[in-house]
Nucleic acid binder design. Structure first.
Lengths: 140, 140
DNA sequence: GCCGTTCTTTTGAGTAATTCAAAAGAACGG
DNA sequence: CCGTTCTTTTGAATTACTCAAAAGAACGGC
C-alpha cells in the first residue's frame, strides 16, 4: 500500500524513503497537525526518527507541493494534506482548533485587493477567527 | 507634546510611562515593525530600556487596543498604529515587506464563510501574498 | 508636595519551535 | 551490485518570546 505514496514522491522528484512515506501516511488521518504531533505518530512506526527529521521531511513535502503549511497567529506551523484547492481556515481564539472553510461567499472577486500599493498579488489567504463548538459550550 | 499619548494611555487604563510614550512615538513613523526595530528606535531616546520591556509594552498596548499585532507566516510579530478599521495586508513572498490594503473588492459579503463547521466567526483576516515593487525589479 | 499603594520596568533566566551543519546511511539509475 | 547523490541522523545553535522576582516609577489621596 505504500506504492501510492512512493509514486507521489517520485512524481514530485523526491526519493521514497520510509520517513516520508510514514509522514504522508499519518497525515491522511490528521488534519492541521504540527510537527510535534506528526513526530509522535511517526515514532510509533519508525522509532529511530527524530523531530529534526520530521521538520525536514515536512519542509521537503511542502516545497514539493505534497503538503500545505499554514501558520495561524499564536500557533506553531500546521501542515495539511488537503492541497490543490485554495481553501481557507477558521481558528478558535480560545483553544486554537482549526477547521477548513471551503470557500467564501462571493469567491474570486473578494480576493482581489482594491489597491495593493504596487505589490503584485499572487495569492490571497483568509483566516477566520471565532469559537469552535466546544469552546462555545465551555463559555455557555 | 507627550500629552496626546499620555491621555490616550490614561483613557486605555494604562499609566503614562516614558517607555510607553516612546513606543507610541516611534510607532507613528514606522508601519509594520517588529519588536526588535521598535527596541532600537526607543533605545536612542531611552537607553535604559530592554527588549523584554519593549515586548511587554507592545503586548500591553495591543491588549489595550492602542496597537494592532499581526503575524504573517514567516515573520516575527509586527505591530502597527493603524487600528479601528479592519484593513488587510499584502506581504512580499521574497523580502517580507508588508503593505496595507484598504479593503477588498466586494467587501463584507466576502468575509462570510459559506460554512465554518460549527465555529462562530467573529473576525476575518485577509493576507495577500505577492511581490513588492523592489522585488519585482530585482526579479526583472 | 509627600506617601503609600499599585502598576511597570528591569534583570536574568528559561522555553518552544525551528534551523543549521557535518557525518553516516539509504535510494536508485546504470 | 555499485557508486553517486540525496536523506537522515545527531548535536548544537538560533530566534522570538515568555516568565518571575525585585527594584523602581505613577498617580490618587491627604
Amino acid at each position: 500500500m505504500d506504492t501510492d505514496f512512493d509514486s507521489a514522491l517520485h512524481e514530485a522528484g523526491l526519493r521514497a524513503t520510509a520517513g516520508r512515506v510514514a509522514v504522508l501516511e499519518v497525515m491522511e488521518s490528521m488534519a492541521h497537525t504540527d510537527a510535534e504531533r506528526v513526530y509522535r505518530a511517526v515514532s510509533e512506526v519508525l522509532p529511530t526518527t527524530s523531530i529534526q527529521s520530521v521538520h525536514n521531511i515536512l519542509a521537503d513535502l511542502t516545497t514539493a507541493g505534497l503538503l500545505r503549511r499554514i501558520e495561524p497567529a499564536g500557533s506553531a506551523a500546521l501542515y495539511e494534506r488537503r492541497i490543490g484547492d485554495n481553501h481557507h481556515h477558521v481558528v478558535c481564539t480560545r483553544c486554537g482548533a482549526v477547521g477548513d472553510v471551503d470557500c467564501v461567499v462571493g469567491e474570486a472577486p473578494c480576493l482581489t485587493p482594491s489597491s495593493a500599493g504596487g505589490f503584485t498579488v499572487q495569492t490571497a489567504e483568509v483566516t477566520f477567527w471565532g469559537l469552535c463548538p466546544s469552546c462555545q459550550n465551555a463559555a455557555q
